[in-house]
């Protein structure tokens, strides 16, 4: 029977394996060590690896992320945890200016092999300050890589390649996904002895012929639910493509899917204005215009700050019914 573990456990396994793989890997963040992680992602790792490798940071994101960036220039591979990705905004200068541009401004003499990871999602009734989805913002900056895994399998393989990557990788998770289980092979079941997923490779989560639902992060799960309804109720065979990494981007997989189905919707929990879907739909329009039988649609979070009230916030996020409804307008 295939092994099933949670997204959280898979992520922890990936971190644990990389701590073993390279002495220069350390985990720094608020409550990551003695408290076992605000979301228990790092549970048990401090006990196993000790004070040098698991470091509890004060509430000082600009300070400790900037410090991690400096340390990475000298060959340390810090994995920084943001309790919420929303808090990246207080470290914005460090993450945008220092991590992203030092390589360029030094003519290639430096690089920053840092990972900044944490949950970047709405939908948990914590209000606007704790519900930001900055993947589009960081993906806008050349020099940065942005990864957004949607399931347990991918989060393990992607965190491992992100830590081994020699460029800054901003790794955006979801608190809603942490408890979700998925099949993750144990290492002895794998030919290479470990699960590594390259950045820049999308994954077809469900094959289909009639419409492409392209998504990243938790919107992939929502899209899969929509695809089921489309199949059962409307006999529409939707393909679901998970980008997994936003930058680098698997453009070929997007175009291949669109050329097959001739219809596409980009689904994301990002905001609409200059969102990831805006970029993807523009690329589809430029490169696969003749293959399209309908305009590319985008389904995003509502263009408003996150609403606290639970029943209303739910309405702000993409849901399967909305995807079905919009899909029917172009199928």
């Amino acid at each position: 029977m295939p092994r099933e573990i949670t997204y959280r456990e898979a992520l922890r396994e990936g971190l644990d394996e990389e701590l073993a793989y390279d002495d220069n890997v350390c985990i720094i963040g608020e409550e990551v060590a003695e408290y076992n992680g605000a979301y228990k992602v790092t549970e048990g790792l401090w006990k196993k690896w000790g004070d040098k490798r698991l470091i509890d940071a004060p509430i000082s994101e600009a300070g400790f992320i900037g410090m991690g960036i400096g340390a990475s220039m000298l060959g340390i591979r810090p994995v920084m945890e943001l309790m919420f990705y929303s808090f990246a905004y207080v470290a914005f200068d460090q993450m945008m200016n220092n991590a992203a541009t030092c390589r360029y401004m030094s003519g290639g003499l430096t690089n920053c092999p840092i990972v900044v990871r944490g949950p970047a999602n709405g939908g948990t009734n914590v209000g606007a300050t704790h519900s930001h989805t900055p993947e589009n913002i960081f993906a806008n900056m050349p020099g940065l890589k942005v990864v957004s895994p949607s399931d347990a399998h991918d989060v393990k393989g992607l965190i491992k390649s992100s830590i081994r990557d020699n460029d800054p990788v901003y790794f955006m998770e979801s608190t809603v996904l942490y408890g979700m289980t998925g099949e993750v092979p144990s290492n002895d079941e794998l030919e290479d002895g470990e699960l590594i997923i390259p950045l820049g490779k999308a994954k077809v989560k469900k094959e289909g012929t009639d419409i492409s639902l392209i998504a990243h992060g938790r919107a992939v799960v929502t899209s899969l639910q929509a695809a089921e309804i489309l199949a059962e109720k409307y006999d529409i065979n939707a393909e679901v493509l998970d980008l997994r990494s936003i930058r680098p981007l698997d453009e070929a997989a997007i175009m291949e899917s669109v050329r097959k189905t001739h219809r596409a919707i980009y689904v994301e929990e990002n905001k609409p204005f200059c969102g990831v879907g805006a970029q993807i739909s523009s690329m589809i329009m430029e490169q696969a215009f003749d293959d399209l039988d309908a305009p590319v649609l985008r389904i995003t979070s509502a263009d408003a700050p996150a609403f606290y009230s639970p029943p209303i916030e739910k309405l702000q996020l993409p849901n399967p019914e909305e995807i079905v409804e919009r899909a029917l307008t172009i199928c």
């Binding site: 220069n24 220039m73 340390i76």
Partner: peptide, 30 residues
């Protein structure tokens, strides 16, 4: 910049280099 001479910039954002300085020291200690 001249990393071969242990020289890590040259930074244009006022104060922006100060956490990096702590990071270089962190790396030495690590």
């Amino acid at each position: 910049f001249a990393p071969d001479k242990n020289y890590w910039g040259g930074h244009g954002i006022v104060g922006g280099q100060t956490p990096l300085g702590a990071g270089l020291a962190f790396a030495l200690k690590y």
